[in-house]
Design a protein around this nucleic acid. Structure first.
Lengths: 272, 272
DNA sequence: CGTGATATTGACCGAACTCAAAGTTGGTGG
DNA sequence: CCACCAACTTTGAGTTCGGTCAATATCACG
């Protein structure tokens, strides 16, 4: 399998100068706005903040002034416990907003780190509030974005609170698949971007378990994986994994006796 | 230990007729608003929706029109997986808002059930958006409330993703303690309101584990517990449990050899 | 081509789960 | 008022999933 280039490089297309001609407009803050209102966002958005791989979009504990919208690249958000334990709270790709956790306290609670070179837009929060008082559509859409994040969080709680390791990985892969597909990339072949340890941190399991589950999925013909490159061979069967976790530790060659429940997870949830 | 009456009965004080004379005003939506602006909320809030114990404040899947603010009582929110697995996503008490998860999709994603007789205020969301366009303080405060929920969710992810059973319970108890204290109740003696199974569902562990950990905490003199009535005997030591989970399965009579890290969890997080 | 980081795999262990059996409590109705 | 019943809780015994530790294996990169 040759290496996969999934996420568009910031250099692959001309950088947008306005939200109006941004390719991820419909996934982002200006979604649903008319041309006139979109133009007003120019006073709110500071474009083309380039963050190189491993660089920080924002740091936990620092003062909050802006949200960040991802134009290109992939961002990992983590919270860190006093004793050093780290928890990945979200993986974000183009069109998504980060930093909303900071609105209450005025300080970011997460470290947001670029997993590859990123181009992000800074959204000055005070300006966003000002403008959204004048543009009801923008106001409502921003509320929807926050509401979406809350609903996503509840999905993650369900995952962390009541799913087996194999289910968690299946959910994780399917979620990435769906989001890549929504951005015009392949739904079946993509790059994980995270190492096994970070995947584990996000899913509440250890890196060895991640590795073992992926190996098993491969043995079972659900996918092929080589480091961070993954190709899903059987999306349907992967979906059936969820709710059928009991079959995880059986070998594929054995007949899947207990396969009764075939209900996939509610597709609405966006788990990363 | 005699039964404890912790949460004010809706009958114990006259019901407020306006936000201005509501006792939980400063914890709720009108926090920080002047008298004039508070008065404007009358067009937004429909007061005194009584929900009896076991009744629903809202149901997953039903159409979203309003948020709900809790005036009195205690509400449990849950999401349910297709296969029936249930995850408690939050426990909410007076002054808190629920339903924000529904803003995006227009449908509630949670079932919100009253754990005791509740008095809730319905906040018609369209009206709230309308008014918050006119009252910047209200707008910002609402954004803070949503941001607070997101930050809380990240704390729950940390709990579910990287804490041991004993730590989870310690965090849970300390969180309840803090929130009761903030509402003028005892910080050390209160009612859990949830049975062992629901506590477990919230914390991602099984009911037997909840029972065992509570028994052990009692043996160790950290608290006394009888069913849902709990009295914390040693708040400081309970705080030290967090980050010292390795000592969980040792008996108190043994010297706690490994007790080096005494850093409590960041107090900002509100875990329920 | 060597070296350090990452990934895989195996063996073993242990925290939490499962199953099961009492024990306890509160509510209901005789 | 008390007996009974259903629901909840506690506790024990055995199992298992995932963690831990350790030994390779593989890859990226200088």
């Amino acid at each position: 399998m040759s290496p996969i280039q999934l996420v568009q490089k910031s250099s692959s297309s001309p950088l947008p100068r306005t939200c109006a001609d941004c390719v991820v407009r419909d996934l982002c803050l200006p979604a649903g706005l008319g041309a006139k209102d979109t133009a007003l966002l120019e006073h709110v958005v500071i474009r083309n903040r380039l963050v190189e791989r491993q660089g920080a979009v924002c740091r936990a504990g620092t003062a909050f002034h802006s949200l960040y919208a991802i134009y290109s690249g992939f961002v990992k958000c983590t919270v860190t416990h006093d004793d050093g334990r780290e928890q990945v709270t979200g993986l974000h790709m183009s069109g998504e907003l980060i930093g909303m956790d900071a609105i209450n306290s005025g300080k970011y609670t997460c470290d947001a780190v670029a997993l590859e070179n990123c181009n992000v837009c800074e959204i000055v929060f005070g300006e966003l509030e000002r403008l959204s008082r004048e543009v009801p559509t923008l106001q409502h859409h921003f509320h929807r974005i926050m509401g979406r994040e809350i609903a996503r969080d509840y999905g993650v709680m369900l995952l962390l609170g009541s799913m087996r390791a194999a289910e968690r990985i299946a959910v994780f892969l399917l979620n990435l698949s769906k989001r890549y597909a929504a951005r015009g990339h392949s739904a079946t072949r993509f790059n994980l971007l995270l190492d096994r340890e970070r995947i584990g941190s996000y899913l509440g399991i250890k890196l060895e378990t991640v590795s073992r589950v992926l190996s098993r999925f491969q043995e079972d013909g659900l996918l092929t994986v080589q480091h961070k490159d993954i190709e899903i061979k059987d999306l349907a069967r992967l979906e059936q994994m969820i709710g059928n976790y009991r079959d995880m530790h059986r070998h594929a060659s054995r007949p899947p006796l207990g396969m009764v429940q075939e209900t996939p997870i509610q597709s609405s949830g966006q788990y990363a």
